[in-house]
Structures are given as structure tokens and as C-alpha cells.
Design a protein around this nucleic acid. Structure first.
Lengths: 205, 205
DNA sequence: GAGCAATTGCACACTGCTGTGCAATCCATG
DNA sequence: CATGGATTGCACAGCAGTGTGCAATTGCTC
């Protein structure tokens, strides 16, 4: 039946959750992983996956939606009520990075998948927000770059991706990565290294 | 027969060349483009493509090899006989960028393909060279970053990718992109914006 | 115009993935 | 232990792509 004892998710729900989690990891290893691979990795039969998601696209779409939603929230929360562009950027990066450990894989995946298209589209709002902050920073002279704000937004986005890969490959400790990312992003925007370091250190204490 | 008149490439060679060129463009639009799509786009029948390349992988492999080779050459040439790390980095970026207009597409493609693995492997030497320069710069204090040299190399690599996408999307003029890339890369490494701009301007006159 | 390599146009076998249907089975709950 | 939703196992149709074989044809070269 529909109702269930308090605090106890049905087996179906648990399976659905696990399938999503496993799919995330599995699609990283191979962006073209088949439904069968995913199902087996989730300890389930292919047919069962189709019981939860009508088709492959629906599954991936759900995955993307979850990630994008979490990311948008973090990005927005990170800079609410802050007027200084530099601090705003730093806070955003740090906030987004919180999720990195969970979604790093998906982001890396996104890089090399056709699905990339869909993801970039859905991230457009976030990117526009970021562009806005960057533009303000450039206008106010807090930032300094030969690049127009939108291009700088691209660069920042890719820098985070690069850092995530660096963490994946063990070049940077996950613990420090957030701070490093924030500092590097600010630095790339033209904020003096010393000032960037100081600001981030203060935020991160 | 095998021999041919001076300076005149056989139709076969011309076809092979054209197939490679078209495949490059076609695989960008769709990393999973079929052999048939590629063949048709090259104004040729699928069977003909198989006449030149035993299989899909061989074709892509050839494509990658050409690009990597050109890239390595440019990267090395750009910084031969230069001792200042900052100038070295700036020269490399500018040199590599020369090829960007031709290979930008492939690079973007690489980002989202499984083939990515193979490419990153083959680019390892270049990345190591870059890491070396970055390390020297960090040691000498010319650069300043919380990131270790290898991670910084990742970041720089991705920044170039981002810039290429920005150009593809019309956010930056191809003509200025090289200079901007160089400046931004240096800035991200902690070189003061003013100094970076000045250096690049001098190199690029 | 004969000769020859390259190209073409089919046809074929094979593989791997998708999405669906259905009967058998599992298993927590009541 | 009975019940019903979830899961399983299997089978099937369909599709798209790959790589290959071969005979017919094109078009350059001599």
C-alpha cells in the first residue's frame, strides 16, 4: 500500500535512491555506460531500473536536476547579503565547493558527455548570476581582467572543473581545495594574490 | 601506380586529407558521430573511409596524433631559450594559441569524449613540461599560488579550454583571445595584473 | 583508348543497446 | 500466513552502428 511506518522508506524508494547514486558514479567511469551496467552496479536487474525511470534520458535528467538544484542553492546562498564583489565571489566558490565532494564526479562526467549540452543550459542562470557579480567587480575596479565578464565566468567555471580533477587525481587535498579554488579564482580575476589569500582566510577561519 | 607527377597529390591522398579535416569538424558537433555521418560530410561513401582507415579508432587516433604533435611543437618552440618563467609561460600560451583556431574544435571535442583518456595520456609530456616551468616560477617567487605546480598546470589547461569555448561562443574576439589567455593564465598564477599585461603586450607587439 | 587505382553501391553478419511484456517470485506488513 | 507491491528472469522486437566482401564504375595517366 501507499502509507508506511514512520521514518521508514520503502524498499522501492531505497532502490531508486541507490540507483541514482550508483548511476552517478558509473556514468563517470563511462559516460556511455549502458542501463545494464548501471543496474548491475546498483545490485539490481535492468528491468528494475526501467521500473523507476521510463528510459535512460529520464534517469540522467533526474541526476542532473538534483545536482543543478543543489548547486544553484549553494551558489545563491553563498553570496546573499554581500555587497563586496570579491567577497561575494569568494563566498560563492566556497559554498559551491561544499558540494564538490559529492558532485565532483558528475561535473567531471558532464565535461565529456553529450548531456553536457543540457547541463550547460540548465546552469545558465547560475552562470548569469556569476557574470553579474564579475561585471560589477570589473566596473568597480575590484577585479581586473582583459576579458569581458561573460568570458571570465567561463574561465572561472572551468577553473573549478580543473581543481576538481586535480583533487580526483590526488594533486590537492580535498580539505584545502575549497580555499585554494577561491583564492585562485579571485587571483585570476586580477585580485592581488595577497589580498585574495587574506580575504579567503578570513572567510574560512 | 605508386609514383606520381611532381607536386601533385593523388586523389586518394586528397580524400584522406579531406576526410580527416571534415571528421574533425564533424566530431565536434557530435562526439559520437557515426562513420557514415563523417563520410557523407566529406562527400564520400562510408566504404571509402574504411579504405583509408581500418576502423573508427584508427581515424580518431590519427586526428589526435596530428593535433598533439602540432601542439607539442608549438608549446616547446614557444619557450625555447627563455629563462624567465613568466615570459616562458606567456610565450607558450601565445604559441599554443596560434593553433587554437585550427584545433580549438578538437580540444573542445576531447573534453566530452571517452577518447579524452587517450588524449590526456598523450599530452602528459606537455603537461609535465608546463608543470616544470610553473614549479620554477613558484620556487623563484615569480608566481604565487596556494596550489602545487601540477594542480596549477591543470588549472591553466582548463583555462585555455574555457577561453576556446568563449571564442566559439562569440564572447571574445579570436584576435584578442591569445593575449587575453596569456594575461589571464599569468594572473591566475599570481603575477600582478599590471605586470602580466605589460609582459604580454611586449611579447605580442 | 587501355590500364589501374580509387571509389562506389550494395549486401551481409554481427554486436550491443533499448524499451516492453509477462509470468514467477520475493518479502515486509498487517 | 495471506496479501500486494516490488523485483526478477527471460524473451522479444527494433534499431543503429560497425566492419567486410565483391562486383561495377569512375577518372586519371600513359
Amino acid at each position: 500500500m501507499a502509507a508506511m511506518p514512520s521514518g521508514h522508506t520503502s524498499r522501492a524508494d531505497a532502490n531508486r535512491r541507490r540507483i541514482l547514486d550508483v548511476a552517478l558514479a558509473e556514468l563517470l567511469r563511462d559516460p556511455d555506460a549502458s542501463m545494464d551496467q548501471i543496474a548491475r552496479a546498483a545490485g539490481v536487474v535492468r528491468r528494475t531500473v526501467y521500473g523507476h525511470f521510463p528510459n535512460r534520458e529520464a534517469l540522467i535528467s533526474t541526476l542532473v536536476d538534483e545536482a543543478v538544484q543543489a548547486l544553484s542553492a549553494a551558489h545563491a546562498a553563498g553570496r546573499e547579503g554581500v555587497e563586496d564583489p570579491a567577497e561575494s565571489v569568494a563566498r560563492s566558490v566556497l559554498a559551491v565547493w561544499e558540494l564538490a565532494d559529492r558532485y565532483r564526479l558528475l561535473i567531471a562526467l558532464a565535461q565529456r558527455t553529450v548531456t553536457m549540452q543540457g547541463i550547460r543550459e540548465r546552469l545558465a542562470p547560475v552562470r548569469e548570476a556569476a557574470t553579474g557579480v564579475l561585471r560589477r567587480g570589473l566596473d568597480e575596479g575590484v577585479f581586473s581582467s582583459p576579458l569581458p565578464a561573460p568570458a571570465l565566468a567561463y574561465v572561472h567555471e572551468q577553473m573549478l572543473v580543473a581543481l576538481m580533477e586535480a583533487v580526483n587525481d590526488g594533486l590537492v587535498a580535498a580539505r584545502e581545495a575549497g580555499r585554494c579554488a577561491a583564492v585562485t579564482v579571485l587571483t585570476a580575476a586580477g585580485v592581488p594574490a595577497s589580498k585574495a589569500t587574506e580575504l579567503v582566510a578570513k572567510l574560512n577561519d
